[in-house]
Design a protein around this nucleic acid. Structure first.
Lengths: 200, 200, 200, 200
DNA sequence: GATGAATGAGTTTTCATTCAT
DNA sequence: CATGAATGAAAACTCATTCAT
């Protein structure tokens, strides 16, 4: 296969970066995990930073595609938003390392972080679009759709990560099993208030 | 004063850690900002990690105290929760570097991260307590108060950080001014659904 | 042509080595400039060092041939020496990168540098031969022809290189135009004292 | 002593750089020769390049000071020029490694090389000043003093280096002994043509 | 003959930590 | 208590060389 080693490096990089974060991730470890020499990484990627950016884009794109696919299964904005939240939770549960990385690298002034936020913004735009459509067809009552989108993202992300990195140290199995509860709670909180015009 | 230098180091450490994150923060920088020699830091703190842990505890304690103070100003859980959310937003806006650090270091398997989560749990416990009191006196209708607490924390935190690290690069002034909108939006979303029994 | 690629590599190597010096020259760059794959270089040349030695010999041989040709145009040693100096200046001006390389690699204890000095000695021998012939036919009055040969080489080389790498950063055009002045000045200095009549 | 280690590093750096040239010189070697840890070098010097520049300035300044001292011992420009040439030869003989480095790093487009040429220009200015004074008081007859200065520098430098790196591999002792001959030959060549009476 | 992906030893640089003063 | 020079164990990155195709 042509891209055999490149793929292995990419996989290894996801794993190591997600495990340790950008700074703690060592190129040596990535090389070892990938089963290639260190030089091989640099033959295919210009630098640690560049590799990371490519990797983040890839990961975020997966998240975005997954969300879009799930949204498109439904017609009503309400159902779409519910699907989106469920999709988000499931993706984070199944890609927990990536999820942690996402939260860790979403803020900051480094180039990689700025680039990364561009992708995050795409995803948030997807959420916002659903909200706006809901407003237009009278299903949602929202004054600040952008803030609400941020709020949804923050809720869903933190709920999952808090479960994963809970002090009880749950197994992957237990976390998977907890997904439905997390999803339904999030549905309750996040949809309850926007489907009726409340006064707070 | 007895602890003159210790305090200066502590202040400097907050600044530098918050600015750069744990890994990128250099002891040299902390020393320089504090106006002391590098060796002096090691006279007062055992290591970079230990200093960081102390600092995080301090920061989280401030957040907790601030929240508790604001909660205690009110009687009804609804008002308490509103106050808590407003307090959270304001604290994050006024301590944005610390806020970022909080999110960055909340997850992970390192000792400092585990220790840190103990403090986060205290804060979440505070939120949860308000929720439970609200359930008890019939103001809130929640099935999973812990998840809801996480959700509130995640929403409020992400909304503020997203504003601070927005691609528009707002000034501190502009962020301060945006606080009321963020708070009211969060109130709307987070309180709307739990004060009525919704079906999702 | 049979040696099509070999020639292209050779040309590229001259260019890159001359531009960057031995250590800074990268085989990748040579390959790229030559328009061949890196492996191809190693198919034709044993190593970087060996390629460099061959290249230096080639370059020096050109210089020697050029000098010899110009010397042979004249009968009297005085005219021969003048021709030789003019030839040297012109060659250095037209092959400035090679000239720099020559000076940089002329001294040192590395094998390539030792090998290189053998060729330099050939060239110096050519100068010395003219001087000795001049002594024999009574045109020159010199006690140490070898030292004088070195002196001539050093003068002429440095004058040109100093012009090329002057802080004013002259264009190639300007350097070409400065050649006559450099040549006549060198004639004046170098021939004035070794000939009987100081008419230059 | 305050600068104990800094001095040792400096000495070691001169030695290693002079022995191997900038590119081949390894910081490890400098550290080892200096008898300090590698980190110590970086505590005192910002980078390899910066260290090299400081070192070159130091070396060139020594050369300039030495030349100026010797020039100032005499009144007549002729005697001054003779003293300058003798001084140059002796300095190069006694600092042969530095001399080689000087020639190797005098040309090129790197920052360190450009900075270095500023110092070389100072030295050449010193020679030129003597020549111009000689012209003014009627001792020298030169049309291009700058070119003549370059010529003198080139002659003297190359004669010495050629002796040092001769294929016969002379001992330091033998080179020292050869100095008078080199000096007198250079005097003969370089002064003969620029003075009125060719009595040398 | 020609290729270019792969290698790994080697190089500069960084920085938390120590310790003699 | 306080200092800051010194350390050395990493870590990112380079590049001549090899070799399977």
């Amino acid at each position: 296969m042509r891209h055999e080693k490149v793929d292995m490096i990419f996989q290894a990089a996801v794993e190591v970066f997600a495990e340790s974060g950008f700074d703690q991730a060592k190129m040596d470890d990535i090389a070892q995990v990938a089963g290639v020499a260190k030089g091989t990484i640099y033959y295919h990627f210009k630098s640690k930073e560049e590799m990371f950016i490519g990797l983040m884009n890839e990961g975020m794109q997966k998240l975005i595609d997954c969300a879009r696919r799930n949204v498109d299964l439904h017609e009503s904005p309400t159902e779409q938003l519910k699907a989106l939240i469920a999709s988000h939770v499931q993706f984070f549960v199944q890609n927990s390392k990536l999820a942690k990385l996402l939260i860790n690298e979403a803020f900051g002034t480094k180039e990689r972080q700025r680039q990364f936020r561009l992708k995050v913004r795409d995803y948030l735009g997807l959420i916002e679009a659903v909200l706006i459509r809901g407003m237009e067809c009278g299903e949602f009552f929202i004054s600040q759709p952008q803030e609400v989108a941020n709020s949804i993202f923050g809720s869903a992300s933190f709920v999952v990560l808090q479960k994963i990195y809970s002090l009880d140290e749950l197994t992957e199995q237990e976390i998977e099993e907890a997904s439905p509860v997390m999803i339904s709670t999030l549905h309750q909180i996040l949809l309850g208030s926007i489907t009726k015009s409340s006064q707070y």
